[in-house]
Design a protein around this nucleic acid. Structure first.
Length: 581
RNA sequence: CGGUGUGUAGCGCAGUCCGGUAGCGCACUACGUUCGGGACGUAGGGGUCGGAGGUUCGAACCCUCUCACACCGACCA
């Protein structure tokens, strides 16, 4: 491609709302253009990167036995009503009405459509397993889209769905997808960490997330410094020391005027936050209650040095809607002042959940449900019931690994680029998707589902590899593999040499960009840094002496004789394309 | 959904307090000089000042209402 004839609108200044490197360079380098909140144009440069990611995905998915389809982005409400998600999915789902008052949604995911497709066309175990995928745009009306393509509302996703007659068969495909995903991100040149995850609104049991590690990642992940344990913070658990040698003291009421928070109370009573029991009150609507608006109340006790995980709590309560109760609500239902709540002497009928971190506390401290008053010498089980022991805490760095005895958890940030689930029969049952097994009996399909964020994968590459001038693309994703620059565009000798090399590299099947613009060389260097090609070839004033310059995007520079420049370029690109492990 | 802030040329911004026919830098066009890390000069083109209503002889500026965008928060007992 010749730069002068191409469309790469770069900017000298960065748009002021860019927050992270990938967003900054994608906008500044002319990869994307914002059209509306969370909605973007993909410009030629951006599209080239996206297409390369897609190509890698296609090759690996096909190799793993999946077949590509393309489902519509507009989905009739009827299908979503059948699965029940029409009612359960919140405002993220963009609902649209057509001229005939028929309702649709713009698909945020395609379980319903694929189940509908397969139900009507697969009737026998003999036709299983089947694994179908598509690369299609989704729309999710996110609360807070940000970071450019990283969390857009409209975005491109590869989603695959597999159908099986047995759990064992699902396991096999799930493993194959795991391998394929590992291979995909490896080929994209990305550093990866796989964690067990919460399966969220999609439902199902086992699930793993493929995280690209980067400081700007929106997810927190915890992994063991000793064994293979790794989990999303929404799912991570820890091992608590269970024994306490303390002799229980008597329950004692103490005055704690104006001491409300964990910090205030623990320093006032000169004790550790880990001996405090904090009590939180949530309102929620259960999943079973599809259209109701009536809230139930749950009281949760948690050790003072932990934060509550609303994701975990949502699962425990099987809640469709979950919100912290207001101060007024709390005082109405518990007849106790906020800041001095405690699990002792709760009104009858109130649902009390006790986090396992609290269940073994001896001689703890908690609010007395009376203003300016706490209890000390609190013992779980003796002073309040621990019938419902749950895990609703957010595990933190330094906690003990739940799977090996010696490890400690380390926290880092990651970008979720892929997610694989064992869905089971959740959708096939709700949508009556059945086949006949070997005994001639009807069975619901056992399903798996496997997603990759395409744009997010591309942006992660920038997050993992850039300098202050622009992206440093891995060659597999780079919009161009080589960029040729002439120092003086109008110099006939330079122009001829560049044209010749450009045409030869094109014929050799190398993605080459020739910056033939009549610009000062500084301008071209800066734009080249934004294009981020691994190799830049500069044809300048040493040409007359038979020399051309190789500048690698990573920094190294060296002179090359004109006689070997083509051969050397080809072998460098070949070597970059096929790294030796 | 709550808090805060911002809307003036394609991008980045000043002007608003104190009303008087709209400016700067970059980008763009033409010519000239330059030419190895975003050159310089001269001359140009481009804006219903987010929208609606009001006050006023006169509104980017004051008042009211709206819309949009951005950041923070929505884990606190």
């Amino acid at each position: 491609m010749r730069f002068s004839q191409y469309f790469i609108p770069t900017f000298r200044e960065t748009p002021s709302d860019a927050e992270i490197p990938s967003q900054k360079f994608a906008l500044k380098g002319g990869y994307i253009k914002k059209v509306a909140v969370g909605i973007y144009d993909l410009l030629p440069l951006g599209l080239r990167v996206i297409r390369k990611v897609e190509q890698i995905i296609r090759e690996e998915m096909n190799k793993a036995g999946a077949h590509e389809v393309l489902m519509p982005s507009m989905i009739p409400a009827e299908l979503w009503q059948k699965s029940g998600r029409w009612y359960r999915y919140g405002k993220e789902l963009l609902r649209i009405t057509d001229r005939g008052e028929r309702e649709y949604c713009y698909g945020p995911t395609h379980e319903e459509v694929i189940v509908d497709l397969v139900t009507n066309n697969i009737k026998s175990y003999k036709q299983l397993p089947q694994n179908l995928y598509q690369i299609q745009n989704k729309f999710r009306d996110e609360i807070r889209p940000r970071f450019g393509l990283m969390r857009a509302r409209e975005f491109t996703m590869k989603d695959a769905y597999s159908f099986h007659a047995s759990p064992e068969c699902l396991d096999t495909t799930y493993q194959r997808m795991y391998q394929a995903y590992t291979q995909i991100f490896k080929r994209c040149g990305l550093k990866l960490r796989v964690v067990s995850a919460d399966s969220g609104a999609i439902g199902g049991n086992a699930s793993q997330e493929f995280m690209i590690t980067a400081d700007s990642g929106e997810d927190a992940i915890l992994y063991c410094d000793c064994c293979n344990y790794a989990a999303n913070i929404e799912k991570a658990t820890t091992q608590l020391s269970t024994t306490s040698n303390e002799k229980p003291n008597a329950l004692t009421q103490v005055s704690t005027p104006n001491q409300r928070s964990i910090e205030e109370v623990s320093s006032f009573l000169n004790t550790s936050p880990s001996l405090l029991i904090k009590t939180l009150v949530y309102n929620y609507i259960p999943n079973a209650d599809l259209e109701g608006e009536t809230f139930s109340v749950a009281v949760i006790c948690l050790r003072g040095d932990y934060e509550l995980s609303e994701v975990k709590l949502g699962h425990v309560l099987d809640a469709r809607v979950l919100a912290l109760a207001s101060d007024r609500d709390i005082e109405d239902t518990l007849k106790a002042p906020v800041g001095y709540l405690g699990p002792i002497n709760l009104p009858t009928g109130v649902k009390l959940l006790v986090d396992d971190s609290v269940a073994t506390i001896v001689n703890g401290v908690t609010g007395a449900s009376i203003a300016d008053t706490h209890f000390t010498g609190v013992c779980a089980g003796r002073d309040f019931p621990v019938n419902s022991i749950v895990d609703v805490k957010t595990v933190k760095a330094g906690d003990a690994c739940p799977e090996c005895c010696s490890g400690k958890l380390i926290q880092e940030r990651g970008i979720e680029v892929g997610h694989i689930f064992k869905l089971g029969t959740k959708y096939s049952e709700s949508m009556q998707a059945i086949f006949l097994d070997e005994q001639g009996k009807t069975q619901p399909f056992i399903m798996g589902c496997y997603g990759i964020g395409v744009g997010r994968t591309a942006m992660s590459a920038i997050e993992q590899s850039h300098d202050d001038r622009g992206p440093i693309w891995p060659i597999q994703l780079a919009p161009f593999e080589v960029i040729i620059i002439t120092a003086k565009a109008e110099d006939p000798a330079q122009k001829a040499a560049a044209d010749d090399l450009y045409n030869k590299l094109l014929s050799a099947g190398i993605d080459v960009l020739f910056d033939d613009r009549n610009e000062r060389i500084g301008v071209k260097f800066n734009d080249a840094d934004l294009v981020g090609a691994p190799l830049r070839i500069v044809i300048g004033n040493k040409l007359s002496e038979g020399w051309i310059e190789f500048n690698f995007r990573l920094g190294e520079k060296r002179g090359v004789s004109t006689s070997v420049v083509y051969d050397e370029t080809v072998s460098i690109i070949e070597a970059l394309r096929h790294p030796i492990d």
